[in-house]
Design a protein around this nucleic acid. Sequence first.
RNA 1: CGGGGCGUAGCGCAGCUUGGUUAGCGCGCCUGCCUUGGGAGCAGGAGGUCCCCGGUUCAAAUCCGGGCGCCCCGACCA
Length: 553
Amino acid sequence: MRQSKLFIKTRRETPSDAETKSHKLLIRGGYVKQITSGVYTYLPLGWKIVKKIINIIREEMDAIGGQEILMPSLTPASLWEESGRWEGFGDDMFRLTDRKGRRYALAPTHEEVISEIARTFVRSYKDLPQIWYQIQTKFRDEPRPRGGILRVREFIMKDSYSLDASWDGLDESYALHREAYKRIFSRCGLKFLVVKASTGVMGGKESEEFMVLSEAGEDKLAYCDNCKWAANVEVAPVVDRGERIELKYENSEMVFTPNVKTVEEVCAFLGIEPKYLVKSLIYITDEEPVMVLLRGDHEVNETKLASILKNPRMATYDEVLDLLGVEPGFVGPVGVKIRKIADNSVKYMKGFVTGANKKDHHLIGVSLDEIEDVEFYDIRSVSEGDMCPNCGESLSIRNAIEVGHIFKLGTRYSESMGVYFTDREGDQRPVIMGSYGIGPGRIMASAIELYGTENSMVWPRSISPFDVHIIDIAMDGDEIYEMLQNAGFDILWDERQESPGVKFNDADLLGIPLRVIVGKHWKEGKVEVQDLWKGESRILNKGNLINYLKENS
RNA sequence: CGGGGCGUAGCGCAGCUUGGUUAGCGCGCCUGCCUUGGGAGCAGGAGGUCCCCGGUUCAAAUCCGGGCGCCCCGACCA
């Protein structure tokens, strides 16, 4: 392709609202254009990359027996009401009404539609297993889109769904996907990790995420530099080290702490560190209100809480006042009758400070035996320096981009939506399902986060928009262009009337990893070839060019 | 949803505090000349609902009120 004909507009200046590396490069290189918050157009260059990524995904999905389908984005409310996710998705779902007043959702994911298809066509164990997939646009009304293309409200996703007759079958389908995903991300040139994750609104038994470590990532991973063990902090278990935390008080007593509410304020007021505090959080559940006790320097993990309590949510200010007669900030466990669950770390605390359940007062020197009926669980998030559950070394917390997520759904949708098959014995049994997602746009952004800067990029060969970039400084590259095209390369030929500086800077933005420069050596019939991945550059006779490129691509 | 910032030419910004010619600058764009190994030079030119609505005023990009949009941090979420 002649670059003068290619519709890309690179920019000299980075737009002021771009923050992450990938966002800046994507805009500066003319790969994408934002239309509104969290909604982007892929311009020719960006789209070419996404198409390459999608092709890799397709090949690997087909290789595990996946069959491609295309489901609609416009989906009736009734389907979502059956599964309970019309409410479950809440404000994250784009909803609309047609002229007759019927309600629809723009699908944020497709378990419900798959279930609808499966329940009409899957009748017998002989129809199973199945893997169906699609590459299609998803809509999620994110409260806050960010990072350019990293978190958006409309995005392409490859989603696949496995249907099995047995749990063993699900394990196999899941394993097939797990391996296919590893091949996909490797082929796209990413460095990634597979980590245990939370199932969230998808529901189901267990899930794993495919993560690319990056500062720009929004997920947090507990990561062990020593043994490489990693898990999403939402589910990473805390190893109970039995760390004793003790303040020397003879007896507990009440102290006057006027208007001192937060952990920081209490610490500053009393001149102690947060770890000597027990903070008390009130949660409302489907069954009862619960007091959650944590060390002052720890953070509650709501994913873990949700595995112990039914639908926990933090109580509002008024609810706390109502329940305990004291405002949040002075709440404490002593003498309180409601159910109390504490993090394991609280077991080893003595002489601690906590709220007195009286306005402007705290208790100091409290010990556990003053608190009735406490249950202990792992309910806090791991933090920097906690112990690796695998090797015992210290963990660090790293940001990561979620590029894929695989779920063992089980019967969550087949039971609620009536997806049953007849087994060998003639009995009706629910189909066992799995669901598996990949974000091609995030793969593209991740590659930039890994290999780019705000003015330059080197694309992995497999997803590069072109194979070779001819930078024609001599303005005489026709022969080379034709030669390489005839040899089967996908070429971008910069034959524009521009100064060398412009051409090289644009080339840096485009990131095509092989460059042929027709320039000052051309009068001797030589060109310069640069391999950006190897960091190599050499001057070759034009006759040797094709061989060199074939050997190096 | 809480906190912060921004909205003036395609892009990046100044002007606004203290209202007053024809609203500026850089980049980009168009024409011509020139230049060709790292965003060149000279000359000429086009391009604006100053986010929107209302108010104050002889006069509003500028002051006041309301709204909308976008970005960042947090909450939330795959």
